[in-house]
């Protein structure tokens, strides 16, 4: 086991097995709605993708029984969750907690690559562009989910905060206090 794997929690195998029978269409629709909300609030994220803004990315949480297609589609993104390996121009594989931690700026992508927690296949330039664009966007997925959840926003954020404390997974963007 590499040095940093020890600190990256894996999705519980029992829950992962349960996800094998969960219908994926509602999840795809929810994630697409969330990504379009992000596109509205962070348009620069998609501009930063440059020539890769119509590239299909395969996000592969290795501890879950599905992969996620991210089609930036020129700023009108579509997210599709499928079972199996999937196929796209660039594939980024790693534990779900590592992928979420990257989005929130809790981890450094190169460090996860050095430690082999993250594997990139296919178009490396596209993967790099996505990594850099997301890092610059300073996303907080809990806020993004809350913003499209209407009256459920409050309870959802409380649930996310609880899950973060219990699992050690970085489910929100860490605060950057001024140190000096």
């Amino acid at each position: 086991m590499s040095q940093s794997q020890a600190s990256i929690p894996l999705f519980p195998p029992i829950l992962a097995r349960a996800l094998r029978v969960v219908p994926l269409a509602p999840l795809s629709l929810s994630l697409t709605a969330c990504s379009r909300n992000i596109a509205k609030s962070h348009p620069k994220l998609f501009r930063r993708l440059g020539e890769y803004d119509h590239t299909r990315f395969v996000l592969d949480p290795v501890d879950l029984p599905f992969v996620i297609y991210l089609d930036p589609n020129g700023g009108v993104p579509r997210v599709t969750v499928i079972r199996g390996n999937g196929d796209g121009a660039a594939r980024i594989s790693g534990p779900l907690a590592a992928l979420i931690g990257l989005v929130h700026g809790a981890f450094d992508g190169d460090a996860l690559f050095f430690s082999r927690d993250l594997v990139v296949k296919g178009d490396t330039g596209a993967a790099l562009a996505l990594r850099n664009a997301i890092d610059d966007a300073e996303l907080d997925l809990s806020q993004e989910i809350a913003s499209i959840s209407g009256p459920l926003a409050g309870p959802l954020q409380q649930l996310i905060a609880f899950a973060e404390r219990r699992t050690g997974v970085c489910l929100t963007r860490p605060e950057e206090a001024v140190a000096w």
Partner: peptide
């Protein structure tokens, strides 16, 4: 410069 803001923050704090 090719690294993330996480790297930047950690290394800067350390060297400061």
């Amino acid at each position: 410069r090719q690294r993330s803001r996480s790297y930047v923050a950690q290394v800067v704090r350390n060297f400061r």
